[in-house]
Simulated assay, not measured.
Amino acid sequence: MFEIQPMNAATYRQQTRRSTLIIAVLFLVLAMLFSTTAVALFGEPGGDNLRFNVGGVFVGFLLTGALLRGRFWNQTWMAPAVYGWRLKRSLMSVTNVMHQVTARVGQGDPTAMKVLRFYHLGLTQMHELDGNSSDHAQLHREVEQHKARMHALGLDPEQTRLDPAWLESLKPTAG
């Protein structure tokens, strides 16, 4: 279950830039280290060592990815980036069933209405965190109309959680 957390957009951007820079520098150092080592061990002086350079970069990439997911993912300096990644994944999971969501919202399905409201709140936050105010302005009218409809049906418009079971219930059944 994913839950939208309040977050300061300026702080989020600063911290995600910092963590991105740390990971990028780590990748560069590892790629150069493994490329240099591969050429020194297996290469030919003055020869074509492109495959060893590319192999070193590839090993650096794999090791960076493993360190990112295994060691750094739960570090506090990575928390804003991980939160943004999880928010985007949650929004994408709703986008993947959006046809079913909108059809069921049209039928007044409470689960679909909650999912759409979560989507609106999550998308609004993502636009704020990314500093993308133009997309946010385009969405405003649709968000307000849906919120009013939820109030009219007696549903809580503060849907800051996305329950995966809601998405499963909205997926079309095969057969």
Rank of each mutant, 00 (worst) to 15 (best):
A152N: 10
M150Y: 00
G43D: 06
N132E: 15
D156F: 02
T20S: 15
Y12T: 06
G47P: 04
F42Y: 12
T95P: 00
T76F: 08
A174I: 05
G84P: 09
E168Y: 01
S133T: 15
P172G: 15
T160H: 12
D135M: 14
L129G: 10
E44I: 10
G55E: 04
V57G: 08
M7L: 13
Q138W: 10
N8K: 10
T160W: 04
M7W: 00
Q14Y: 00
L91E: 10
F34N: 05
V94W: 05
N96F: 11
T95G: 11
I4N: 01
G56C: 11
T95S: 06
A137W: 08
Q75D: 08
T160F: 11
E142I: 05
Q75I: 01
V115M: 06
P45F: 01
Q15R: 09
T16D: 07
R161F: 09
S133L: 15
R71L: 13
N96M: 13
N74P: 03
E144H: 08
E142K: 12
L87V: 13
M7S: 03
V29S: 11
G106V: 14
V82N: 00
G122D: 14
K171D: 13
V59S: 07
L116A: 14
G55W: 11
N96I: 03
H99K: 11
R161M: 13
V57H: 05
F72C: 07
E142S: 15
R17A: 09
G47N: 14
